[in-house]
Design a protein around this nucleic acid. Structure first.
Lengths: 278, 278
DNA sequence: CGCTTGGTTGAGGGACCTCAAAAGGCGTGG
DNA sequence: CCACGCCTTTTGAGGTCCCTCAACCAAGCG
């Protein structure tokens, strides 16, 4: 192993790692933050999302008072860096992000992706530094919460606290599935499993209405998610396309027969019921 | 890939997979459950554990009323099976357990290990079935809680709810680390990383006072954790032993120089502060 | 136009896998 | 006490999946 694809952008030499680690989210907080006045949550884009369970009005009002504001990031920008303690916790309002972890020698592992409704930053709700970085894969808007006030949420809104636990538990289940992929599945199974995962999440969150997820993912990023080399990722991708199982281009993921892809990747059909959000 | 070590016990043919999946925890609940009367938490073995942050007296009393009883499992027994909805949530009082996930074709991935103080079963606190099985690696005793009453805990004890979030977040961080291992590290790095992880947890929970963790792990189990074949696991293990980095036998793990092993496996020294428990 | 980003292809090598067999512990039973 | 079975470890040999190195192609953009 010891993979350094010097030609692909997400990878980099050891020299650049430090500068990446040093990049703080502080600079971003400057001009980016938009604090809404009035009743912001009335216009919450998540209120229209079918895959999400809507909070009752009183809870929504509470959230409206609890939240701090909005934040926007462009594709490729970093929400926060590894080994920092960001000031905020976030809920994804729109767009897709990814979480990744860097090794000292420049190797990078993409941990998971975040879709609308997902809660970001639980790890830092407590004392710890973040063990990962979060980066926008599309233009995104996030709903921000002040980290210091997190305990107020737990103390005052048991229902939300419960929902948070729900989200954390399901995030953990997703990581377990990825762990199974990396440990037990070969390249083609892995890629199929990832494609199914992404498309399914796209469907659930209403981003992929017709079963086709429009999302820009480079093959380098796929490689970093699957723990494969860039070259082999390319070949595996072509193989899946040739078989007709998954058609994954730079800008979209199309799965003609999801059930078939599921069977191929040996995914048990654990269908998630409607997710809560905060 | 497609690994079937028919000769090693943890692995099995597809025929046996179903019987394993069908094994319910119900049967276990029969004679095993021991409900303590009086003030059980006064004698809680976790109260002596240095690595754990102790709850204040009133909270401890609340837990004492909230808990349901104790349960014991012998090494090799299953606490609950995959795709079931166990009636209880658990806190590990003593012993070590592992969490694993089965694929339909018999491949198995060990997800993580649980040490004293760890909370088990959060995933099913809600609506979902468990996506994994939990099995005892030593004789263990668990503290049980009735799952239906979980919301009471969140509603009445924000501090405990917060602690639960803490535990969930750190469990997630551990899974992230394992993901990095499987995705980016080669066999030797993986094995060193796992050994360091286990020994560190052993030290933190007081099971490995002298830095040597006494724990029976077969090479087959190591293989299932690392996503390696049994044969290659054996050879890698010998290589690490020859180098003098990790001495991992069937019954114990010894790391002469933890810092060296950490550097070798490229683990950032994220030292956990004292864990809470419930 | 050159530069950058992302994709594609070929060739060779190495890490890891599978198949196969044997040996060392440890209990059980004759 | 030895024989026997069971589990776990060990070792050998051959194969393959995946990696690295190294080009080259295509599209977008100043």
């Amino acid at each position: 192993m010891g993979r350094d694809d010097n030609d692909s952008s997400p990878q980099m030499g050891t020299a650049l790692v430090h500068s990446m680690l040093e990049q703080r989210q502080d600079q971003a907080a400057g001009g980016r933050l938009v604090v809404n006045g009035g009743q912001p949550c009335r216009a919450c884009p998540l209120a229209d999302c079918e895959g999400l369970r809507q909070p009752p009005p009183d809870v929504r009002d509470w959230i409206a008072a609890f939240r701090h504001g909005d934040m926007r990031f462009a594709r490729g920008e970093q929400v926060y860096a590894q080994a920092t303690r960001p000031r905020f916790l976030y809920t994804v309002l729109s767009g897709v992000l990814m979480r990744s972890r860097l090794l000292e020698d420049g190797r990078r592992q993409i941990i998971n992706f975040m879709f609308p409704g997902d809660f970001i930053g639980l790890q830092a709700a407590l004392d710890a530094e973040m063990g990962h970085a979060v980066e926008a894969m599309t233009n995104v808007t996030l709903c921000t919460f002040v980290r210091e006030r997190f305990f107020d949420l737990v103390a005052q809104q048991p229902r939300l606290s419960f929902d948070l636990t729900w989200l954390a538990a399901h995030e953990e289940a997703a990581l377990e599935e990825h762990l199974v992929s990396l440990g037990q599945r070969n390249a083609r199974e892995r890629m199929a499993a990832l494609a199914v995962f992404l498309v399914q999440r796209g469907i659930d969150t209403g981003i992929a209405p017709d079963g086709v997820l429009t999302l820009t993912v480079t093959q380098g990023q796929i490689a970093e998610m699957l723990g494969l080399s860039l070259v082999h990722t390319n070949r595996t991708l072509q193989a899946l396309r040739r078989i007709g199982l998954v058609d994954w281009t730079l800008t979209s993921i199309r799965i003609p027969d999801i059930a078939a892809a599921r069977a191929f990747a040996k995914i048990d059909g654990s269908v998630f019921s409607s997710r809560p959000y905060i």
